[in-house]
Amino acid sequence: MRRSRRWSVLGAAVVVSLLSGCAASSSPSPSSPSAAATPSPSASPTPTPPANPSPDPVAALTLEQRVGQLFMVGTNATTASPATLAAVADRHAGGIFLSGRSRAGIAATADVVARFTALGHPDGAPLWVATDQEGGEVQVLQGPGFDAMPYGIRQADLSDAQLRASAEEWGRELAAAGINLDLAPVADIVTSKATRFDNPPIGGYGRQYGYDAETVAAKAGAFAEGMRDAGILPTFKHFPGLGHVAANTDTAADVVDTTVSPDGPDVAVYRPLTEAGPSAVMVSSAIYGRIDGSRPAVFSPTVVSVLRDEIGFDGVLFSDDLSAAVAVSAWSPAERAVDAISAGVDVVLVSAKPSVFPAMYDAVLAKAQSDPQFAAQVDAAAARVLAAKADMP
């Protein structure tokens, strides 16, 4: 069953309240007919009950807890890393990411996840537990209870209905292990079948669903619907598109795309995908010459505004990994976190190297304490995160 988007509306209302500092009055205008009417002498006046606005979930958190909600920290899928346990317990990290590869199966994975969910979490802010469960060579969790998932390009051979049903089963496996968010599916449009291996991060691994927007929208959309059916929040990636680059941002600096444009199919495919139901979006760390050639997308307010303003997406934005990716190595860990949130990213992914998380968290907290405008961005991002979490089953 498709879940309601009511919490996206709540998140928007929270943001407006945070930024405006005022609330609309529920009292009628003195000039309105209801205010001017005089009750019948035989009627007993009924006092108007005071307005009872919904509690603000962001205001219920300390600033330290709000900042923590803006991070997802990695742990090896086979063990609860002490550094990541400390990230959740001491710096309020709002999410964990199971990284690497595990063949231990569902029960063993659930035991790892339980170490983290047993820690204290603020009311209304349950822990996000995520992984990369795409298929093919990008399937973190395997072993007893987990089906082998085909490559994305082979998933695309299934009908939409078959793919949705398969993704629902894969999602139920994740849920049984304690996962509630999948950093999948890939929404990148690879240039062509003939040149797919010239695109190392996507085509080189067979992660793509196809070579045109219509196919990608149908197949990535079917995968996402199946995940939602299982109670898993899907994440479309890597906005605004990694299907045309000639290097991998994980292993190369200055990865520049010269194809993707604000009004092209790589961006437009996100409209039907995100309108279909609750989802998150991951922002790439490549540089997009036709949108903002001055910095990686994850640090670019211009790129983020294309997704927010042109596509109209109001859900949670994740960064790609900012802990160890070579594409962002010219920035310090502290700068990466502050710059991503300043650009409009909601959650900083610290998946490969959790040891850099304390420096990232401390930098964001310090800036929020000293810069009111940045503090408002932190609150707005936390509102979107809490709204998405509230909509989880």
Rank of each mutant, 00 (worst) to 15 (best):
V303F: 14
D314A: 15
F299W: 11
F299E: 12
W331N: 13
G264E: 03
P265C: 03
T302M: 12
T274P: 08
D250K: 00
I232Y: 04
L233P: 00
D263G: 12
R308T: 15
V216Y: 07
W331V: 03
E214P: 00
V326C: 01
Y288A: 02
S294W: 05
V245E: 00
R295T: 15
V316Y: 12
V256A: 04
S285H: 08
V326F: 03
D339M: 12
V304C: 14
I232R: 05
A297Q: 11
A246Q: 05
V298N: 14
L317D: 13
V256G: 00
V216F: 09
H244F: 04
G226W: 00
L233K: 00
S319R: 10
R271L: 13
I232L: 08
D309Y: 14
G243H: 03
T258L: 03
R228S: 10
V316D: 11
E275R: 04
D309V: 14
G241A: 09
V298Q: 12
R308A: 15
L233D: 01
S261A: 10
A325I: 00
Y270W: 01
V216R: 07
G241M: 09
T235G: 08
A247I: 00
A337H: 10
G226K: 02
P234D: 05
G289R: 11
V328E: 09
P234Y: 04
Y270M: 03
A246D: 01
N248H: 01
I287R: 03
G221N: 09
M227D: 07
A297M: 11
G221Q: 05
G243A: 07
A218R: 15
V256E: 00
A297R: 11
A280Y: 04
F313E: 13
P296I: 09
R271G: 08
F236D: 02
T302D: 15
D320L: 11
A252E: 06
A340T: 09
